[in-house]
Simulated scan of single mutants.
Amino acid sequence: MTITLAEEIMLLSLDDESGSAKQRQAAGWAVAGGILLELVLAERVSVVGKYLELVDTMPTGERLLDNRTALIEAWMRGRSKRRVTEWLTKDQPKAVRAALESLCERGVVVEERRRALGLFPMRRYPEADGTVEGELRERLRAVVLDGADPDMRTAGLIALIHSAKLHALAFPDSPREQVARRMAEVAAGQWATESIRAAIRDMQAAVAAVTVVTVLAAGT
């Protein structure tokens, strides 16, 4: 089963049994970035420097992406470009929910609703089909730990994980320094055209910027 970059990041963040999200804030930024990166790869938007431009509104056939194209078009308000970080900040909470709904529709996770202390509504998303995450982790392991050459989408996924500092979600039992070093190499590697690499570098910078702001705010 092929799932989007955003869904892959969301899946990595969910505890398989409890269905609760780990590193939810940072993962949320990477999820929003994953949707945007998919739109870059599909040539629906462009990311150059600090700015986002909408270049094509033709449907991709993937509802998660097409809904975001429509939202970006409305958000642009006729402007030719707007800041990437502004879009990520606006979309992050909604992107997480959209990715979870898509995983539920695919049958990868199931939604469970309950009340904490009998009062506060909570939602959890335990895994229903472990093969999808298993294949995902094997793909990441082959590139990051075994040194295999990545395809474009896997390299983009690794770049987003690295920029949001989610190394422990992808490789909880591996030395972080080793994992981070290899992820940095992949993100900067010769696996795509220069225009795509540049877009991903700019996306990394945007995701890293909003992640740092969130971490600092939480600390205060």
Rank of each mutant, 00 (worst) to 15 (best):
I3W: 08
T4C: 07
A6N: 04
E7T: 12
I9Y: 13
M10K: 15
L12T: 13
S13P: 12
S13C: 15
D15I: 10
E17N: 13
S18Q: 12
A21L: 15
A21D: 08
A26R: 02
V31G: 00
G34M: 02
I35G: 05
E38P: 00
E38N: 04
E38K: 01
L39M: 07
V40E: 00
L41S: 06
V45N: 01
V48G: 06
V48M: 05
E53T: 15
L54I: 08
V55F: 09
L64W: 01
L65V: 00
T69P: 00
A70H: 06
E73H: 01
R77C: 05
R77I: 03
G78P: 05
R83Y: 15
R83M: 11
L88P: 09
P93K: 01
V96Q: 03
R97Y: 05
A99D: 08
E101G: 06
G107H: 15
G107V: 11
G107Y: 14
V108D: 05
V110N: 10
E112K: 14
L117T: 13
L119N: 12
L119E: 14
P126I: 05
G130N: 11
V132K: 04
V132P: 00
E133N: 10
L136I: 06
R137M: 11
A142C: 07
V143I: 12
D149L: 05
D149T: 10
A155N: 02
G156E: 01
L157G: 03
A164T: 02
K165Y: 07
F171Y: 07
P172Q: 07
S174G: 08
P175E: 02
P175M: 03
R176C: 10
A180D: 10
R181L: 12
A188C: 09
A192F: 06
I196P: 07
R197N: 11
A198P: 09
A205M: 11
A209D: 12
V215S: 06
